[in-house]
Amino acid sequence: MTSLSHFLSTDHSHCDDLFAEAENAVVAKDWTRAQTEFRRFLDEMKHHFAMEEEVLFPAFETHTGMSGGPTSVMRGEHVQMNEVFAAMRDALAHQDGNGYLGFSETLLMLMRQHNLKEENILYPMADQALAGQQDALLNRMEQIPH
């Protein structure tokens, strides 16, 4: 069975692909496609956040006894990204390409730094700490609806 690290990192990369699709549609000024792609991207991001916040983080916090540590920083960054999503959605609604690109650039930096921290630090820690429950956790994450 795949590791937590591998499963969630692969999902990051899938989200990156959708991010690029949406941005490329904005660059091409294809607003209909941009709306669709942005919606797909957003759904996937929210799904990823839910897998972490509802399954991985609580399990990690219970196991390590750390609720104010790395997971709370990651939750904080999710909130920050949600705010940028809202700004991107507004820009898209107004077909403001430059406004969208300004925030997509910002989101990309934020998101990739966040992902780096998770992939290099948090996930490997979770792999170690939660080795015994890995299969059950993966199952629960897969069951979260899109």
Partner: peptide
């Protein structure tokens, strides 16, 4: 070590 690895500060 864990906390310092991921703190926002």
């Amino acid at each position: 070590m864990i906390a310092s690895g991921l703190s926002l500060e």
